[in-house]
């Protein structure tokens, strides 16, 4: 007869379960947080012209960070959000260039 070391298994079980729970929570949270980051980062396309050059540079850097995260998502999310991110980042770059150019040539 094999006696099952009950105590040990249940400890392992708890460990495994909590690991699964942890993994689940972090991925769920991870998803949430990049979406929130995306929303925050791209919320300024409506008033981009009133941002300072520095603020624009920070936003552009955040877009680059987000890109590496979004590239790891599943196919459809990647397709949709890389496009949205690209439009938002490119506008910030455009506005930065436009503002820098007009600063250089005094009217």
């Amino acid at each position: 007869m094999n006696t099952i070391p009950y105590g040990k298994t249940s400890k392992q079980l708890v460990l495994v379960l909590s690991f699964i729970l942890y993994a689940f929570l972090t991925t769920a949270h991870g998803q949430e947080s990049w979406r929130t980051d995306f929303d925050e980062t791209c919320a300024r396309t409506t008033d981009a012209m009133s941002l300072s050059n520095n603020e624009l540079k920070v936003l552009i850097a955040k877009c680059d960070q987000l890109q590496t995260i979004i590239e790891k998502q599943e196919e459809t999310v990647r397709k949709v959000f890389l496009k949205r991110l690209q439009m938002c980042k490119n506008l910030y770059v455009y506005v930065l260039e436009s503002k820098s150019a007009s600063e250089k040539t005094p009217k």
Partner: peptide, 9 residues
């Protein structure tokens, strides 16, 4: 996205 208030050109 809940965007900042629109500032028009």
């Amino acid at each position: 996205i809940n965007k900042a208030k629109l500032k028009i050109q």
